[in-house]
Design a protein around this nucleic acid. Structure first.
Lengths: 249, 249
DNA sequence: TAGTGGTCTAGACCACCGG
DNA sequence: CGGTGGTCTAGACCACTAG
């Protein structure tokens, strides 16, 4: 059965099945999970889809929009609409303080970073407070897009006091590796985790649609001496990450 | 300044400020954060908004839609569009195995539950595998909407072997209290946390819009003997919850 | 340049809520 | 009942991509 046959409205469009965009969305979802619409194949153009399914283009777009948000399909302006390759989910521990780079290396996955900001700056109020800096102090900041296997996974912005990381440009891959060499690796951290809808700017960088679910993590890590070493705000793709925690009484 | 004056397009609508729905969305956001559009006040009707702002109703709806998804405003069919009261965020520990009810009671907050399902059922495949049940065994299941201060906070579906919880109807508020009385309180648990866009059915129950970000948590908890006592899948509102974890090297 | 998605319009009808 | 949000349409123009 071809995709076009599969989408003919006779088989699925009914008057009492709820809104038409919801019915079309369900049909497309079935096509994707059943394999009739395989990964990397393209959907018919919106206008054609509207004609085939006998609904207006606006309604087609509303159906497609939800699938894009859930990460099942992808739209590229001027090019088309495509079924996405299913994303393998990664797990990260919430009880052990590990380095992203080292963690991935252990699983045999290559990680790369795209630098978005790396240097020495005047601290924001939040940074000054968390890191215990005065207004005249400066802060080392590295902001990057982390990728594994060429796929964007998370945005990470780390801020450190200048005496802990005097030269941010020294960090090539693993921040924790650099800190270890200086004998300043954190031994403890507190993380706050929440779920948010990703905003337009960050969605672009992560290759997801605006509004997709993401895990926002704020981490404050401490040296053995008890001093704050690092303040990090990360944003992980919800479709790519699970965090695992072990709880005790 | 009245809301209507504030929304007149002269002050904010420009030809090079990007899409009109994005400009309108920004303007509305400014109104909410600045207090010109105070909590619990109503927005002008969509049709009127379209006339004031000199854009079409479809475009007004697209702007509003994003604010609804982010939880800033709320729409009630037949009634109107309203600015929401900011939600106080709650924190929950990810290192200590606590009871939701007891946890909230400690902070002086009252919790209630709406029962969605409570009884004895044939296990799903996932339940059978996780709890170590055979096909002929039955499972006690409680599915409820948890509320604090009258606001829906989370959906929680717990499944337990029948010999650990023979009578699910016995659970009035705290599941862990009932288990404690039987000497079968879990001492350890493993949780998997991920971010998802909430689906229509669950969004209704949680009083959020479809697509809002939520924290999905799968928890397997263990008795002192090492036996699996409970399998729970919870869905927390992203706008109401932070989870806090402490990490060590 | 042709074809795609992105934005926008004016207008219609339905479903629901409240006085 | 009137007013509100929810759905849907046909058609237009713009912005981007690719051959």
């Amino acid at each position: 059965m071809t995709a076009i046959e599969f989408l003919r409205p006779d088989a699925w469009l009914s008057d009492n099945g709820g809104p038409r965009y919801a019915q079309l969305r369900r049909r497309l979802e079935e096509g994707i999970t059943s394999g009739i619409l395989p990964p990397n194949s393209s959907l018919p153009p919106e206008r054609e889809l509207a004609e085939i399914t006998d609904v207006s283009r606006v309604t087609v777009r509303k159906a497609i929009q939800e699938l894009v948000r859930d990460g099942l399909i992808e739209q590229r302006q001027g090019s088309g609409t495509f079924i996405r390759e299913p994303v393998a989910r990664l797990e990260q521990s919430l009880s052990h303080l590990t380095s992203f780079t080292e963690d991935m290396a252990q699983r045999g996955m290559e990680t790369t970073s795209k630098w978005l900001e790396r240097g020495v700056f005047a601290p924001t109020e939040q940074e000054a407070q968390a890191l215990g800096l005065s207004e005249t102090d400066e802060v080392a900041r590295i902001y990057r897009l982390r990728e594994t296997g060429g796929r964007p996974m998370a945005l990470e912005r780390a801020s450190l006091p200048l005496d802990i990381l005097p030269n941010p440009l020294e960090v090539k891959t693993s921040l924790y590796e650099v800190l270890s060499q200086r004998g300043l690796r954190p031994v403890r951290a507190v993380q706050k985790i929440s779920a948010i809808n990703i905003e337009a700017r960050e969605a672009d960088l992560l290759s997801v649609v605006e509004g997709a679910a993401g895990l926002s993590i704020e981490r404050t890590s401490y040296l053995d001496s008890g001093r704050v070493a690092e303040l990090t705000r990360s944003l992980y793709r919800g479709d790519a990450y699970d965090f695992v925690a072990e709880l005790r009484l």
